[in-house]
Amino acid sequence: MVVIFVVIKGSRKFKINKEKMKIGDVFRELGLNVEEYIPVSNGNIVTEHDEVKDGDLLTLYPVVSGG
């Protein structure tokens, strides 16, 4: 079982418990579009193909901003 914490910078927080998963699965789990966020795991930018590890803190940086 993998437990990770996800923060969307500047707004919501989530906790996800799941079997083995990739960053792309986290997006699907939360109903988010991979085109709209840059995932940063424990301080490093990662891609949708990277796997998440137990205890990871994933911060999603919104691509869309401003007006």
């Binding site: 910078k9 500047g10 707004s11 940086y61 919104p62 901003s65 401003g66 007006g67």
Partner: peptide, 11 residues
């Protein structure tokens, strides 16, 4: 990247 990602309230 801005420390606070604040969206324009009119957007």
């Amino acid at each position: 990247y801005p420390d606070k990602n604040v969206e324009c309230p009119y957007a």
